[in-house]
Simulated assay, not measured.
Amino acid sequence: MLILPDLWTWDFWTTEARGVHHLFFLMAPTALGDPDLRHQNARIGHATSTDLREWEFLGEVLRPGEPGAWDDFATWTGSVIPTEDGWHMYYTGASTKEDGLVQRIGRARSRDLHTWTKDDAFMVEMDPRWYEELDVSVWFDLTWRDPWVYYDDSVGEYRMLITARANAGAADARGVIGLARSADLESWEVLPPIASPGEFGHMEVPQLEQIGDRWYLIFSAYEWAHSADRTQRGLAVSGTHYLVGDASTGPFRLDSAEFFAGDPRGELYAGRIARAASGDPVFLAFLQFVDGGPFVGGLSDPFPIHVDDRGRLTIEPDPSWRATVPDELAATRSG
């Protein structure tokens, strides 16, 4: 578990190098008082661990750009991928001139995972042929964020999954997983969505992971981001869910209507699948609340993932994360 005394942390992504897990995450000072203010005060932090439980906080690695930059409003969720000469971090940015309402995807480079330099010439933007442009009468932002970049051996190219919205359909059901591809990580082509279930307003923090012979497309949604149809069916919770496919390229489908890690309040959110030292998949999540208490803003301990004989995922109970937030940290958390 990672809970920092003076910082809220939330969305995160991981990579592994020489037996060390590197965690990158959004963070903002608890001195803001209201956790809702964290989004426009986000920085990207870094921590390391050898067991996904005990973390060493290493400080800030990325922040919004200088005034006038395309990302001078905020730097938000992304992913990290190894390259021939180091590592690339793909991240979400927004600008003050657009009041933070338009999201774009940028990149930073590193040789050691510790020091990062932004690549100001790089940007991947929404393509209106398939995706929704900014119209606050329909949705509150131009949704184009949370890039998850990976190399797909089956098609011989890099791929980027993106939280996005389709440009047609009911406003509360346009949430899709957008897609872009590249042969060299330099030039990117935006493609139609890789998944369009028509059940959510947005599908945040995507990740693609193979477990056994199936491919799981992980995403998260808050209770308010479910379509009216799902809400009427009694399925609206906050948490992490997945689509499933038989190939890395899809097609992807909802295997179960119910979230595999969800509850009305969303104690665990923006979950990711990581790999323990054994190679087994485990579930990590942004820890919002503990047993109905105040907002925490931390990282959960890993949960073992169980795959049943139908290929459905469940999280095995692990009471350790439900421990009360330590007394020395409780005073820094907002009620």
Rank of each mutant, 00 (worst) to 15 (best):
M1K: 09
I3P: 06
L7C: 07
T9F: 00
D11E: 11
E16I: 12
A17Y: 14
H22V: 02
L23D: 03
F25K: 08
F25M: 12
P29Y: 08
D34R: 02
R38L: 00
A42S: 14
I44K: 05
I44E: 14
G45K: 04
G45S: 06
H46Q: 10
T50D: 10
D51H: 08
R53V: 13
E54N: 14
W55T: 04
E56C: 10
F57D: 11
L58I: 02
E60M: 10
V61D: 05
G65F: 11
E66C: 05
G68T: 03
W70V: 11
F73I: 03
W76C: 01
S79D: 03
P82V: 08
D85A: 08
G86S: 10
W87F: 15
Y90V: 00
Y91P: 00
Y91A: 00
S95H: 10
T96G: 07
E98P: 01
E98Q: 12
G100H: 09
L101T: 11
V102W: 02
V102T: 14
V102P: 03
R104E: 08
R107M: 02
A108D: 13
A108R: 12
D112P: 09
T115V: 12
D127C: 00
D127V: 03
D127F: 01
R129E: 15
E132Y: 01
E132R: 13
E133R: 14
L134K: 00
D135G: 04
S137K: 15
V138R: 09
F140A: 02
T143V: 14
R145Y: 04
W148Y: 15
V149I: 13
Y150T: 11
Y150S: 12
Y150G: 03
Y151P: 09
D153M: 02
S154D: 15
G156T: 13
G156M: 12
Y158T: 03
L161S: 06
L161Y: 13
A164K: 04
R165K: 12
N167Y: 08
A168W: 08
A168P: 02
A168N: 08
A171W: 04
D172L: 05
A173S: 13
G175D: 06
G178F: 02
G178R: 01
L179Y: 14
L179A: 05
L185E: 10
E186N: 09
E189M: 11
V190Q: 09
L191H: 11
P193I: 08
P193M: 08
I194K: 10
G201P: 01
G201W: 01
H202R: 09
H202Q: 09
M203K: 03
E204W: 09
R214W: 03
L217V: 14
A228N: 13
R230Y: 09
T231R: 15
Q232V: 06
Q232R: 15
R233S: 09
G239A: 04
T240L: 01
T240A: 00
V244D: 05
D246Q: 14
S248T: 14
T249S: 15
F252V: 05
F259Y: 14
D263L: 12
Y269D: 06
Y269H: 15
A270W: 05
I273S: 07
A276I: 00
G279T: 08
L287V: 02
Q288I: 01
F289N: 04
D291R: 15
D291A: 15
G293W: 01
V296G: 04
P304I: 07
I305N: 13
I305M: 13
H306C: 11
V307F: 07
L313F: 00
I315P: 06
P317Y: 12
P319Y: 01
P319M: 00
W321H: 14
W321D: 13
T324H: 13
P326D: 07
A331V: 11
